[in-house]
Amino acid sequence: MKDSKDKPEIDEIGCLEAINGLYAYLDGEMNDPESIAKFEHHLEHCQACYSRTELESALGELIRKSAKGKAPEKLQNRLRKLIDGI
């Protein structure tokens, strides 16, 4: 892909900085667009950090799916009764 001239320059970051920001990125805690752009730019150019991010994101998804709770019906009824009675 050719760089268009109005595309802003993105500062390069190293693997250490990328890995330090990885969880903030995945947890939606990287809030300024510049940091996000730097991080994503690094991923496009670094296979190792790209794979790491893929892995962390897949693992996060798996944790979410596996650890999600489901209130037993007995508890649901108990809570509804409790709220009815207050």
Binding site: A67, K68, G69, K70, A71, L75, L79, I83, I86
Partner: peptide, 20 residues
């Protein structure tokens, strides 16, 4: 009370998951 009840309904699974 209705508002509270609605919100608790939406949180039941999360509450139980955390508690468990």
């Amino acid at each position: 009370k209705a508002w509270f009840s609605r919100n608790i309904e939406q949180c039941m699974d999360s509450l139980y998951g955390l508690a468990l």
